[in-house]
Design a protein around this nucleic acid. Sequence first.
DNA 1: TTGAAAGCGCTAACAG
DNA 2: CTGTTAGCGCTTTCAA
Lengths: 348, 348
Amino acid sequence: MPAADPRRPATQADVARAVGVSRTLVSFAFRGAPGVSEGTRQAILDAAKRLGYRPNAAAADLARKRASAIGLHLLDLSNEVYADIFAGVREALEPTGHRIILGVARPPGRPGEDGPGAGGPGEWDEADLGPLIEARVGVVIAATLIDPDERVRELARDVPIVSVARRIEGVDSVYSDDRAGSRAATEHLLALGHTRIAHVTGPYHEGRHERRQAYDAVMHDAGLAPRVVAAPGYSLSAGREAARVLLAGPDRPTAIVAHNDPLALGVREEALGLGLSVPEDLSLTGYDNSRTAGLTGIDLTSVDLGAHWLGVAAGTAALERLADPGAPAVDLCTQPRLILRGSTAPPA
Amino acid sequence: MPAADPRRPATQADVARAVGVSRTLVSFAFRGAPGVSEGTRQAILDAAKRLGYRPNAAAADLARKRASAIGLHLLDLSNEVYADIFAGVREALEPTGHRIILGVARPPGRPGEDGPGAGGPGEWDEADLGPLIEARVGVVIAATLIDPDERVRELARDVPIVSVARRIEGVDSVYSDDRAGSRAATEHLLALGHTRIAHVTGPYHEGRHERRQAYDAVMHDAGLAPRVVAAPGYSLSAGREAARVLLAGPDRPTAIVAHNDPLALGVREEALGLGLSVPEDLSLTGYDNSRTAGLTGIDLTSVDLGAHWLGVAAGTAALERLADPGAPAVDLCTQPRLILRGSTAPPA
DNA sequence: TTGAAAGCGCTAACAG
DNA sequence: CTGTTAGCGCTTTCAA
């Protein structure tokens, strides 16, 4: 039998009334607090089940004056990396019983999406993190933020932030060494004998340019001219668009370093569509080492940043931040690994 | 300058005090309610920004006695379909300002994962939906539930449920005709001339067997012996395991209908690893039409169930359910499309 | 146009 | 072991 009052969810008061005890007892019984006799506890639990009582987490948090939920901000659900990060975060949080409130960034094509160097208002993360803050999460784990560092530090005054896959001075950060990963990919191509190596990056955002910078640096050190094309996003179709530009001209690159796997896959599709072979006519590297990259027939050389591990570390850092708001900011950096596959070879 | 009291988030009372008005006014001003003079409103908004005031959504819901959040339960983030459904749901909910609280099912390998017909306790969804209910969401959109119909109807007494990609009598359901999709795939293989067609399904769950049933029916009608192998999950690696069994024996199938794309991709990897060619030695169909299925070199024939559209429809249905709790259950069924690609061909 | 007061479901001292 | 009493931050009658 559901609660007597139809449609209105049962409350602790209903349970207390049914059993004939005070509301406090019910509260105690549910939290396993000491001071409730075994008999009473059973009676309470039984009645609760009978009435279909469910604790109201929001009300509990309000009364307790502290959050039981952790916010998780993901940039793009259609990118496997974020699913991996999520899995890691949950693994770390699961045993603690913290609810995870997930927020996902609005898709690209937002008004004001600006090109390299334009230096837009940088207030995108605000829109995504706002709802999490208003849901009163105790800390938000963010993968990946795109606003300028300074802006993120401002946001971090409203709620503790753990930045995943991006280092932000003064904010808990758990990330992979993007410069090293990008450098490894570019140098690999260089070692193979390529000289016309291009880079496909995404829209400009501060804090998302390390892969590009490392590419630039390696090219510069090798005395080669860098060539960078910014795709209109981070997806496969954005990669196709970038490739269209890159592969059309006269001195087509013989190798391309893509910012991530979807972009690389897009470049690959476009190249294949143009009648080029990979790696014979075009060597290609991705970044993220997604499941797809490893499929036979795709064999995309890619950089593995250990997304799952980052997730676990971020979850752990969040817990620590919750426990000690005053602790110094965590700064955890891991080394990525270049996974060699069939998409790279010496130039023809 | 942040709130005077360090670390304690500003409240409406703080704002009211700063401006010199009552809390009521602040509340009104924030919700754009009529009855606040333009001057006062501006003063309030200014002070709020200055103090770093953020509305407390949980407290507001509590006082308002109704939920402003919608729960979204996703079975598996690493499967693209769910990302597509998510995108659709958000598209529908975005303009309304409802927060989306996301829950993701615990990964497989739970205790009690039972085989076909075993009829286990069937209380898995409960564990996943519980936190959503306790967060007091107004309705939960669930993609995909795995408990028996009857159990889901019980859960639906605690909170309105919109079931996505699965029809449940008496519960709002937005789904694709799985029998039709599976039938189309199987018949396609039949028409190609295959007779030894096997089916790779996942662990048994009531409400997740329509694809299998349609396969069985088509085989039966064609006078052929069905052969079904249950993979230990719905992932690529689960597909590999199933294929190991299927491709080892003496009368190896010449075609396989997989329950979904990851499973199909797993079968493909295993087959290729065994030295078989697709489609020459083995025709293969997936289900979901993921981005990966469409990649050159993968070319997986797959059934498209319009995941994004399902998401939009589910979001819309959720909104309607919120507006009218008493309305009859929605029952929306769409027709899937078989996308023909290079992974299917006549038997050698 | 503004404010006072009650209460949402729950927790947390503090008494019995 | 059990009950009483205050709130948590916010909305919402109802008066002024």
